[in-house]
Design a protein around this nucleic acid. Sequence first.
DNA 1: GAGCACTGC
Length: 765
Amino acid sequence: MASYNPYTSQPPVSSSPAPANLGKNDPLFGWLPRNVTSEQVLKAMEGDVNPFTKRPHSAQYKKILEARKKLPVFGQMDDFLKIFTKNQIIVMVGETGSGKTTQIPQFVCYSDLPHTKGKMVACTQPRRVAAMSVAKRVADEMDVPLGKQVGYSIRFEDMTEPGTTFMKYMTDGMLLREAMNDHELSRYSTIILDEAHERTLATDILMGLLKGIARRRSDLKIVIMSATLDAQKFQRYFSLEGPEKPAPLFKVPGRTHPVEVFYTQEPEPDYCEAAIRTVLMIHRAEEPGDILLFLTGEEEIEDACRKIKLEADDLLNQDPDSVGPLVCIPLYSSLPPQQQQRIFDPAPPPRVPGGPPGRKVIVSTNIAETSLTIDGIVYVVDPGFFKQKVYNPRIRVESLLVTPISKASAQQRAGRAGRTRPGKCFRLYTEKDFMTELEEQTHPEILRTNLANTVLELAKLGVKDLVHFDYVDAPAPETLMRALELLNYLAALDDEGNLTALGSIMAEFPLDPQMAKMLISSPEFNCSNEILTIVAMLSVPNVWLRPPNQRKEADAAKAMLTVPDGDHLTLMNVYNNYVNNKHDKNWCWNNYLSARALMQAENVRSQLLRTMERYEIDLVTTQDERRLWTNIRKALVCGFFMQVAHKEGEKNAYLTVKDNQVVQLHPSCGLDTSPEWVIFNEFVLTTKPYIRTVTEVRPEWLLEFARNYYDLSTFPDGETKRALMRVQKKRSSKVAGIIDSTPGSGRSSPGANNGDEPKKKKRRG
DNA sequence: GAGCACTGC
């Protein structure tokens, strides 16, 4: 045998097939997959031939390599490779600036050699932009074109080449999707979960899955990358051989500058006012350097920017010799990208040459804590609050609450001051409160959210017992019960909790179960074309723009597009008009519509259409408009029968069916009457309990298309139940009238409204 | 008569 077989002394955890024989001049000649030394890797990296493409390394490559060598993680390659060789699961901690996201996956590729066995290395990210930009960087570092050996996969964009790509960055949600149709994730030899400490829903579910897969697939290696504070928890969670053997930890220091932290002496009663005062104090008294202030939402941010600007201009006029000019830049996600770019503008120049330098203040939501990094920040002002989604399973409502941040979050915020040079962080709470009042970690998303979608995904992932699934943190039983109950009513799960054929298709759609059910049912009502549009519109951010100084004009424009029969029909009408106006941005602008959101809706619509085609769900429509609208409203009932409210009393007060929550129509609602029965897309708890995106429905549809849920014997007593009973009585006598066609036995008169004809509308008010 | 923390499929 001429060539050496590299697999004879392979460690037991691997069961990979033998690679193609390598010639003596191949940079990988003689390497033992998963038993590669740092000497071998360094030699290959510094060699003239790219070991993965067999092409000469470019000059650019060598330059980048020199920069990579300065990263803290690079100096620990040897340690990493040793620990990777010896273990199936590793927990790795690398602080900001360590280079872990770009380097560790490359080290893994050099050791694992996935391309020699037809496998891939995956590295997940919580955000799309991160997956894209890191993949681009790593492709450059490995001297390959993006989308070939190194690629990425995110929703709407697959930049990989089957058979060529062996290093794939992807969003955590995307890997979860793949797992639904490949329960063992068999395409991957190593899976790296990055930013695990963020505890997104997808990462949490992946951790549970991977723990199970690791037991069945000894050839799969797993690397969990996280921030310091969470490492122990993950080490314990991934101790496959019992609690006394936690998963090994690999730790890399960060490369940041020290940040001095200051606390207030007393608690601040008004954090917004205190924040503004602190920013101005820094501006007056501290060395040059930009400021980052964390507030909780758009309104607070815009208000603070106005006030800071006013006061700073005053200071500049009073004392131009010692105070420089100041610009204040708001930052939150609903700002158009162009305005978000402003955060990278340089600070303003001195007002006069040689005068005091200018300063930039960024007033931001939590988006600047994780998603966006801004270089040049020297001062952080942290009032200690953020808006958090919380779910109340009892009344099935998610709401946003201003809550104190966690210690981990406070640490992260402070760190934003030390990216380019030593900085300062001003915390607007006392040190005692920091020590005693703040939680260690932010609650993971799985504990704060409606899990209907997740439970359906888990069922599709083959998890039989959802309650006893090995969660890193188990959700509240009531939240799981609510999800199981909804999915059972939607017929996605049977009474034993098993996934039905319908549920299996529902899970394929990137939609909430109610919307998936509605879409799948819609061909029966000859309106799948329209329901598809409505579902797409409901999946994107609000399309209505309402600039503060043009509210009247915006409302008038909205009225022109409103369909008084229901907000769902209005959404469809907006989309159709958008398409009829050739997707014109100016048309959007003139009608106070967000072109960005409408483009997104179009994108989502075409993705959903592809899934429909895959499952042969017909795209059909009804020609007659009034008939079409009725059919659409019937199809709505098939998904949203649990989100129905009944008008009770005089003053537009509604009561949700079964839950008996008192709610009102949201002021954005376009109905011109207040109908007796309405279906709603969401229940929001803001200043009052509101139902938003509302359409009128007929009670007989509820009884007909959602028989199980509208089994009146399960209803609490009350006006809703009595009203439904009257409808039921009428229906049964109508049915009796049809069966026993004796004249006069049926109550219904000929030509009674059968639901296909429009009703006359009463004007409200 | 009111919003819209942030992601992801």
